[in-house]
Write a protein that binds this DNA or RNA. Sequence first.
RNA 1: GGCCCGGUCGCCUAGUGGUCCAGGGCGCUUCCCUUUCAAGGAAGAGGUCAGGGGUUCGAAUCCCCUCCGGGCUACCA
Length: 482
Amino acid sequence: MTVRVRFAPSPTGSLHIGSVRTTLYNYFFAKQNKGTLVLRVEDTDQDRLVAGAVDSIYDGLHWMGVTWDEGPREGGPHAPYIQSERLPLFQKAAQDLVDSGAAYFCFCSKERLAAMRAQQQQRKEITRYDRHCRSIEPKEAAERARSETHVVRLKVPDQGVIGVDDLVYGRVEWPIETIEDQVLLKSDGFPTYHLAVVVDDHLMGITHIFRGEDWLPSTPKHLLVFQAFGWPVPPIAHFPNVLGADGKKLAKRHGATKVEQFRADGYLPEAMANYLALIGWSPGTEEEIFGVDGLIAKWRIDQVQKAGGKWDRDRLDWFNGVWIRRLSEQDLLGRLDPFLPAEWDRNVIGRALPLMRERMRTLAEGRELVRFLFTDEFPLDAATQVPKKKDAVGAALALERSAAALRETTPWAAAGVDAALRKVATDLGWNIREVAHTVRVAVMAVPIGLPLFESLELLGRERALARIARASEILGEGPRSA
RNA sequence: GGCCCGGUCGCCUAGUGGUCCAGGGCGCUUCCCUUUCAAGGAAGAGGUCAGGGGUUCGAAUCCCCUCCGGGCUACCA
């Protein structure tokens, strides 16, 4: 049997990092089994639709390198792949269940339901539907359904136990009396999630149901629906949630949660996939740098963790740095490009690249590292120019001597700059670190960054001298203004 | 409240009865390298394996209880 798995996002916002992890696992499984991956858009809640959400799903997943075989834009043998375009299928399915006596029409108003729930809560009872409409004669119900607004509810058995052998969580069982007569078809004619997933997973020939842990509690509902139709239940697995630092499901308040945000911040898809895959899965070895191909080869569902994993930005940053360093210069330059202003000379960037790559954890950081090469407009602070244990007068002298030395340096290259500044240091009785510090701040504004000598080479003699001159002026003003 | 799931260093995790007085990675500390910062190298701190009872010659690993955390509990997905 060919493996067919699906990922079924709701277009209710831009692509969440947690959904990406789940999708990745589906993708790995499909690929390693030479199976088919299906994208199905579950837009059965018309109130929560967000424009552009499907674009976000496509953009985000494609950026990550995930591809699928069937979907809204790809088409396929089970089209359409958007649930709102499959309404007749769900309506027929619901009607079949009513006809077979497994489901019934319910005419209760939302107000009655709300009042009932409030009462139950007040009496500290379990809040669930009281099956008020379940006793209406089918004939009468069918008649009323013609004119009255109604929903279709599942007739849940009175008692018993229902369970699943989850591929990750193992055997999980629920007492049936804790499950209410679930709404299958809403009054607007749309199915609920619980009807739609079951019907579509069956119709689309899905062989393995993989989804996030938060769906585990509603699995018995789905089991009951499968049962009502008399359909076989495919193997099911739930994957542990991705959590925020506080242990709760990762959400907006925890910071960035959208793929596009990470993309915009300069994270590489390789790093995202690598990092994400390792939340909730481990190869069981000490290897941890994996490309997507490696993940496809190594990922195994029986190695998936049950406990949720917390999001750790530092670890992501580390993975990103690792992947940045693994890129060829050519490749890295290409990735950097969209992060750089168009007017920044790419040849200069290319020359700076070897200096940058070990210092940037994100592409955006890379941009900041070379900013000083392209703009003379940055704030200079006299105090930071002065090395520890030195004073402004000394720093001014160091700058003056450095400028003089650099004026003479030929050819204008890092090695010569190195030698020249070392000589200045010796003459001054300073440490080269101290001279470099002062010059660095004069030229780059901050005491950290790319190596100074190479940076000066890239900057060019004239601009370097101009900046040193400017810094000297500011240094001279320093004591007076202070 | 009810149902369900989970609980190994701050974080991601290895570990499925002995080779574990618990291993790796991130982060942290120190040192080396060094013009800064990184990267790289070396060393180190950090864990009553949630707690308590069992079972067993032997338990992080099996059983029970407790505690803590989380998810779900809609005509949301």
